[in-house]
Computed example of a mutant assay.
Amino acid sequence: MNKRYSLHHIHSADEFTFSPEEYSYFKYGDKTYAEKFAKELFDGFISQHAGLLDGEKEIVVLPSPYMAIPTASNFLCFYFKKHLDFYLFKKGRKSSTLSKINRNHTYTTDYGNLSFEDRKNLISNDTYYLDKDFLRGKLCIFIDDIKITGSHEYTVNKILEQYNVEGEFLFMYYAELMNFDLDPKIENFFNYYAVKSVEHIAEVMIKPGFQFNTRIVKYILGLESGKFEYLSSKVTKEQMDLLLELAISNNYHLIKEYENNINTLTQTELYYGY
């Protein structure tokens, strides 16, 4: 059984019920907005659909699929779980469990620029894994930040069918595009609303609530050398060390477009004697 809930509905290209600026910072690693959005999402959901959590069925929450580097939605999911667990605690219920859909490939393409068919074709080349036995019979809440074309939901449903998972499935979004006359590229309008340049990236990275996610790692690794050097001069060595660690963990060192900047990071490590 599939259900869907979204907090904000996008009907227009210029009027929104959430802040595009906050959303942009969220997408590039500012966890303070992940926490803010998660509380808003949870409160909105409970105010309308608390009955869906009734009963004794175990609850599992899952962010959008990723390999080693979490997506922005992973942090939204983490904070949503915090509010959900406190709600369940007050009901005398068992807390929810955080799970994951693993993916085996990555790509450099900017997802926000693609149509539904292009997105579907891109992710169809990927392979995914989930623990079907663990999910079976539970209420599974799949959390993503925004629904534009539905390709994420399509992919998750395809995975669930492939693994023959039986349970209750709830797809939850902070925002959802309702007017399909709007170009799907509106997603990148939100993504880049406040973060448009390497200078903005540097500003985000020095915020106390910053944490790397897939989007910002790919952005940095794809920078031309001059801009990469600029960013390196504005942030800490510890952050650049972590960037290299994350890049390797996600196999970005095998992607030609990222070779130069990863080599630069590697040379820095060698210089400091690692």
Rank of each mutant, 00 (worst) to 15 (best):
A50G: 08
T17V: 03
C140W: 07
I148F: 01
N125S: 11
K81V: 14
T108M: 02
L265N: 10
Y272V: 00
Y33Q: 01
A72E: 13
K31V: 13
S12C: 10
S19K: 04
G150C: 06
C77L: 07
R103E: 11
M240I: 05
D118W: 03
Y230V: 06
D30R: 14
F78A: 05
F18W: 05
F171M: 01
L242S: 08
T127Y: 12
D110A: 11
M240A: 00
D131N: 15
Y174I: 06
E176M: 07
D133A: 05
K196D: 13
H200G: 10
S225D: 09
G92M: 06
S64G: 05
K3V: 09
I143A: 07
T17C: 02
K90T: 15
A72V: 03
G137E: 05
M205N: 05
K120P: 00
Y28R: 03
K218E: 08
D183Q: 03
I186M: 07
A194T: 13
L243Y: 06
E21M: 04
L244S: 03
G29L: 06
V195G: 01
A247L: 00
E203H: 12
E161V: 02
K158V: 07
L182M: 10
C77D: 07
Y66Q: 01
M240E: 02
S12A: 07
Y274V: 12
K158R: 11
L246W: 06
R4I: 14
D118S: 15
F75I: 02
E40G: 06
F45R: 00
L98R: 05
E224V: 14
F210Y: 08
N2K: 08
S96I: 04
L84F: 12
I123Q: 04
G55R: 05
E22D: 13
V235E: 02
H152G: 00
T155Y: 03
Y193P: 01
Y5W: 04
V235C: 03
E40I: 09
A194S: 15
N260Q: 14
F26P: 01
D183I: 10
L88E: 14
F78I: 09
G112T: 13
A13G: 10
V165K: 03
K36R: 14
N157P: 02
F228A: 04
E153S: 07
F80D: 08
M1Y: 11
N113K: 13
D183W: 06
H49R: 12
L231E: 03
G209A: 14
V60S: 02
L246K: 10
L246T: 03
H11Y: 15
G51A: 13
E153A: 02
K57C: 10
G112Q: 05
F142S: 05
T155V: 07
F75H: 10
P20Y: 09
D241E: 15
F116N: 00
P65H: 07
K82Y: 15
S99W: 10
D85I: 11
A38H: 07
F42W: 14
Y230T: 05
K196I: 03
E245D: 09
Y193H: 14
F169W: 03
I248G: 00
E257V: 10
L114T: 06
E117A: 12
N157F: 04
